[in-house]
């Protein structure tokens, strides 16, 4: 199994690599288009700011490349948001793999519910769909850190409640994505990463 983690500026990419290593998977961290295209599994991680990262993807041509991938791709956090149509963070057009917008949590709505922005910490996921969540239980806890979110949509593979219900994971064809960080979500997260590696393709 040849697993590639897409390397780009910013972001805690190593924690994804370390999590895979704990599962016995040796991934390659690279931005080489040929290596990404040839991989069996591609992970598109992300921590950072949407518009500057999107700009970087465009300059390097990674934007086209990611859209055209045919093998299973897993976007994580900002990675997931960049796979959507448009992000309010820096008002930027994104890859458009998932035809959904990325919005900022409404601070005043959050305040009314005594909630903080960013949404930071462990929260429950539910309405679990696809093999990505095999052996994961409804209402299991995973780790989130984000100020922008994808509203509930037909692409949702999991839902989370914070300020309002929103998409905690997305799925379309060979593209999977999680708003939370499986690499930081303890045993549940490791199961999800394992499921991604073991997807039938």
């Amino acid at each position: 199994m040849n697993v590639v983690i897409i390397k780009y500026k910013g972001g805690n990419i190593r924690s994804v690599d370390f999590a895979l290593k704990r599962l016995g998977v040796d991934a390659e961290i690279t931005s080489d288009p040929d290596k990404i295209k040839a991989a069996d599994r591609v992970i598109f991680p992300g921590v950072g700011e949407a518009s500057s990262t999107m700009n970087y993807l465009k300059v390097t041509g990674l934007d086209q490349l990611i859209k055209e991938l045919k093998q299973p791709v897993l976007g994580i956090c900002l990675g997931m948001q960049l796979m959507c149509r448009h992000s309010e963070e820096g008002d930027v057009d994104c890859l458009g793999i998932f035809d959904v917008p990325v919005k900022r949590f409404d601070a005043s709505k959050a305040k009314e519910q005594s909630l903080k922005v960013p949404h930071m910490g462990w929260n429950r996921i539910l309405d679990l769909k696809t093999d990505l969540f095999k052996e994961v239980k409804e209402q299991d806890y995973v780790y989130f850190v984000h100020s922008y979110y994808v509203p509930a949509s037909e692409f949702a593979a999991a839902t989370c409640h914070y300020v309002q219900p929103y998409s905690a994971a997305l799925h379309y064809k060979n593209f999977y994505a999680t708003q939370f960080h499986p690499e930081k979500s303890g045993d549940v997260g490791e199961q999800i990463l394992k499921n991604f590696i073991n997807l039938n393709y």
Partner: peptide, 8 residues
């Protein structure tokens, strides 16, 4: 720590 621990 990052290699061994699976929480933030």
């Amino acid at each position: 720590i990052a290699r061994h621990i699976n929480i933030p």
